[in-house]
Design a binder for these strands. Structure first.
Length: 493
RNA sequence: GGCCGCGUGCCCGAGUGGACUAAGGGAGCGGAUUGCAAAUCCGUUGGCUAACGCCAAUCGUCGGUUCGAAUCCGACCGCGGCCUCCA
């Protein structure tokens, strides 16, 4: 089976072959934990999840690491970020406000570690609701930046020793982009282009101490900062790019990894700087063989926006009656190299797809009495499904093959169930949050209403039955009447 | 201004030169089923025809290459990302 992915580093689709098969070492940039993660953030994490699951289906042993960025202030260029306020300070203010209103998420909002932990807990909860596999490996494969300060300092020392870094007159340590000839190879922002670039956000004041305007901060001495650590360069904090270089190489145990992922906005400067740092420290040609980037998510055709209130979190959507599994399906089925668009219609569509797969699964399960057969990738349906995904995660073609297969003969229910479960290793929707979606939802009141509907129908009191049914529908239930009686289950969206 | 991605039918999207029909899903319409619904199943969704058929048109726009273009090339239009906050 031909496995290929779009590699930002090469600018095209390339055959994928891990360095150390069957192991695959992949790292993806995780969330900053000074606020709740929104669905847009989760899109890129979901792409990483789908890629990981695809590789697992194809027989690889995937080692995935996703970081949690818990250092609020990550760069020297305060002027460029949200008015120069530290992210953790902003989060503390928000939480204090909440405390005044009687909600006390953390004991001490001024403690950035408590703030971070609060948002980490929320993130893990949301990630598990969405079925991100790596979230079940928390904390071992989901490291916090603040736990790797020593490693970051070690990397800075290596970079200083290798003359890739220098200490400027302001006492800060900078990376010298001119010392790294490959700088710009990922993003196309080579040094000469950056020089002529018109970003205009770096003020002269910041440039004065640097050897080159594009040099970026590695360590900032700042004794007044909310989060600071001792270092040979004074008490201060590391840059934002350093954590990924250090945690990826440390936790994956490799100088060169197979896949590095993130959102498209990470390409520059973040990933470009990661490459410069890691290769500068390891002396290797490459940091990651593949760089895979997910495009952004829109809401109703528009960019997500705070002022329009479209920074939806998983919990926001759940409050609107949209189950996490519907969100998962919606994020999974959108091609990762195009901007995706989250809409009500799309979510309902996705919810129906999930429901259809679950009903199919339930039917197979009943017919084979839960005795699942054993199948591998040589099975024609799985071959089609797997090879579609192996072709740069062509999820649309994979889903088409899945639906085509569903139309076929399933007299061997045990085998079909096995095939479906293999497919669901990637989709991850059959069992996700299933308890909330079962017949009657485990809710006694709902079951009683269903029984009342049946009773009314038996006595031909159709108006009574219809009213009861409408009550259930209004409450977000899907009501199903058959010869066996009436059942209801919570709609997924 | 520089670098880069994208534009397919009502919606989401597959499809990188050739089989008469542009995959698949959703939505719509018709039918089966139902007390009525929902769910499910079958059919269908350019126009005309009761029908056999007939006539078109189409992949952002305009050109080009080719026997042949959604697919390759050029220009333009539109949307988006990055150019030191960002998934």
């Amino acid at each position: 089976m031909k496995i290929q992915f779009h590699n930002t580093l090469a600018g095209c689709i390339e055959p994928f072959e891990p360095i150390d098969p069957p192991n695959v070492y992949m790292y993806n940039c995780g969330p900053t934990v000074y606020d709740f993660a929104h669905v847009g953030n989760f899109r890129s994490f979901m792409i990483a999840d789908v890629l990981r699951r695809t590789l697992e289906l194809l027989g690889f042993h995937v080692h995935q690491v996703m970081n949690l960025t818990d250092v609020g202030h990550m760069t020297d260029d305060q002027l460029a970020d949200g008015g120069g306020e530290d992210k953790m300070v902003a989060a503390a203010k928000r939480l204090k406000q909440a405390k005044k209103q009687g909600v006390a998420p953390v004991d001490n909002p001024d403690d950035p570690y408590q703030v971070a932990q609060y948002y980490i807990d929320a993130f893990i909860e949301d990630a598990r609701l969405l079925g991100l596999k790596v979230s079940n490996e928390y904390p071992q494969n989901m490291p916090r930046a603040t736990q790797y300060i020593d490693g970051m300092q070690e990397m800075i020392k290596k970079l200083l020793a290798a003359k890739h870094a220098y200490i400027a007159s302001d006492g800060a340590v900078y990376y010298s982009v001119e010392s790294f000839s490959q700088y710009g190879q990922l993003s196309g922002n080579t040094i000469d282009r950056l020089r002529s670039g018109a970003g205009g956000r770096i003020t002269d004041e910041h440039q004065v101490v640097k050897r080159h305007p594009a040099d970026f901060l590695l360590w900032k001495p700042d004794a007044t900062h909310i989060m600071k650590w001792d270092s040979p360069w004074g008490a201060g904090y590391p840059n934002w790019h350093l954590e990924c270089s250090v945690m990826a190489t440390t936790l994956l145990g490799q100088d060169v990894i197979d896949i590095h992922m993130g959102g498209e906005d990470n390409i520059f400067p973040h990933h470009e700087c990661e490459i410069a740092q890691t290769c500068g420290a390891t002396g290797k040609e490459l940091f990651s063989r593949f760089w895979i980037h997910a495009r952004h998510l829109f809401i109703n055709g528009e960019k997500m926006s705070k002022s329009k209130g479209t920074f939806y979190t998983v919990r926001d959507l759940a409050a609107k009656g949209i189950s996490p599994v519907a969100v998962r399906m919606e994020l999974v089925k959108a091609p990762y190299r195009m901007n995706a668009n989250l809409t009500q219609q799309g979510l309902v569509d996705s919810a129906r797809t999930v429901q259809r797969l679950r009903d199919f699964s339930t039917d197979l399960d009943r017919r084979c009495d839960g005795a699942v057969a054993s199948v591998d990738l040589t099975h024609p349906a799985l071959e089609a499904f797997g090879s579609a995904l192996a072709d740069d995660l062509n999820i649309a073609a994979a889903m088409a093959s899945l639906f085509a297969w569903i139309q076929q003969d399933h007299s061997d229910a045990a085998e079909s169930l096995a095939v479906l479960r293999q497919m669901d290793r990637v989709l991850g929707v059959l069992d996700l949050g299933l308890a909330d979606n079962q017949e009657a939802g485990g809710d006694l009141e709902i079951a009683e209403t269903c029984a009342a509907i049946d009773q009314a129908r038996a006595q031909k009191e159709f108006e009574v039955a219809d009213n009861l049914r409408q009550q259930l529908v209004d409450a977000g239930y899907e009501v199903h009447t058959s010869k066996g009686g009436t059942t209801a289950r919570k709609k997924l969206a």
